[in-house]
């Protein structure tokens, strides 16, 4: 395939990904809104989740067979649509297409596919979906699906509508092996922070409902886990992301020392990475401090996430700095 064909394929796969994510988003949302009550579902969840991920994993390789198998299982068990299955199936399939978007684009440009804002945001969305799939598998956090898928669809929408850039070479400053290390770490950390952010928002909603005693009244909040486990999930994902974010900043400094002649120069991107890091550090400390645990810590985590988002969008479009590659 020529580079142009690969670039074309990448753009087509992007459309496929978005469509699949939208379907997955709808299915997760329907499951959250009208699915079986959590208490009743709990008993079956574990085995089900395993079966699902297994089926969906196979689906990435051979969609037709897996789909058939899936349908057969559906018919055998229950007549009505199994929204969870559909959602997981579509998100794993979308994830595979998403991977294809990045691989084909990287091949078309003969470089790492995160050289501009479009590619970077695409990769962050991919990392967020990946983090969600991992969290769903390990902690049964299926309820996060609707929220993470929503974030992914918005991110991909923004990337395609406002940030789209055709395949091309990177500026000489980005032409370094550090792009594979520094930017990848930033992408992975941002994706994980996104999942933690979704869990934190849910935690705040659920905690409020619990304190008002309305948590069991039904509705979406009745179908998500307790505030305590949401808090714990957010914490765990943040604890995974924080060292990676630290490493991303350190590796960025090493690269800056190679490219610009100083390892730290308070460039706007550096300032905001630092601010983000500091606030996440404050969150991790607050989480372990009496009187700050819970709501206050959660708010800190959201402020940190806002700083992270501002670092991505605000810094690149509002300030001029060395990171303005868009």
């Amino acid at each position: 395939m020529s580079d142009a064909d690969l670039a074309n394929l990448s753009d087509k796969l992007m459309l496929t990904t978005v469509v699949m994510y939208v379907v997955a988003l709808a299915a997760y949302a329907v499951d959250l809104g009208f699915g079986r009550r959590r208490a009743a579902a709990e008993a079956r969840e574990k085995s089900e989740a395993k079966v699902l991920v297994g089926a969906a994993g196979a689906a990435a390789d051979d969609p037709a067979t897996a789909e058939a198998g899936d349908e057969a299982a559906d018919e055998g068990e229950r007549p009505q649509v199994d929204w969870v299955r559909l959602a997981v199936f579509m998100s794993v399939l979308g994830w595979a297409a998403h991977l294809g978007v990045m691989v084909s684009r990287g091949l078309a440009a003969s470089r790492w596919p995160w050289g501009n804002m479009y590619e970077f945001l695409t990769a962050i969305a991919f990392a967020a979906v990946t983090a969600f799939l991992v969290v769903m598998y390990r902690y049964k956090a299926r309820f996060l699906g609707a929220f993470v898928m929503l974030a992914a669809v918005i991110a991909l929408g923004v990337a395609n509508i406002w940030l789209y850039d055709s395949v091309g070479p990177v500026t000489p400053a980005l032409n370094s092996y550090w792009i594979a290390i520094h930017v990848s770490a930033a992408i992975v950390a941002t994706g994980a922070f996104t999942v933690a952010g979704a869990a934190t928002i849910l935690y705040l909603l659920k905690a409020r409902a619990e304190s008002r005693g309305t948590a069991a009244d039904g509705g979406v909040l009745a179908r998500i886990p307790s505030a305590e486990s949401l808090d714990r999930l957010a914490m765990r994902v943040t604890m995974f992301a924080f060292p990676i974010w630290t490493a991303a900043i350190v590796m960025g400094a090493i690269w800056a020392d190679q490219a610009w002649g100083r390892y730290w120069g308070w460039d706007p991107k550096e300032v905001w990475s630092f601010v983000t890091w500091i606030i996440y550090a404050a969150y991790l400390h607050a989480r372990a401090t009496a009187g700050w645990k819970g709501r206050k810590a959660a708010v800190l985590s959201l402020i940190a996430f806002a700083a992270l988002m501002f670092n991505f969008f605000g810094v690149n479009y509002m300030f001029s700095g060395l990171h303005s590659y868009a």
Partner: peptide
């Protein structure tokens, strides 16, 4: 795993 006590940072 989903309901075990959290691992928290040691400031």
């Amino acid at each position: 795993r989903g309901s075990g006590p959290a691992t928290e940072p040691k400031e």
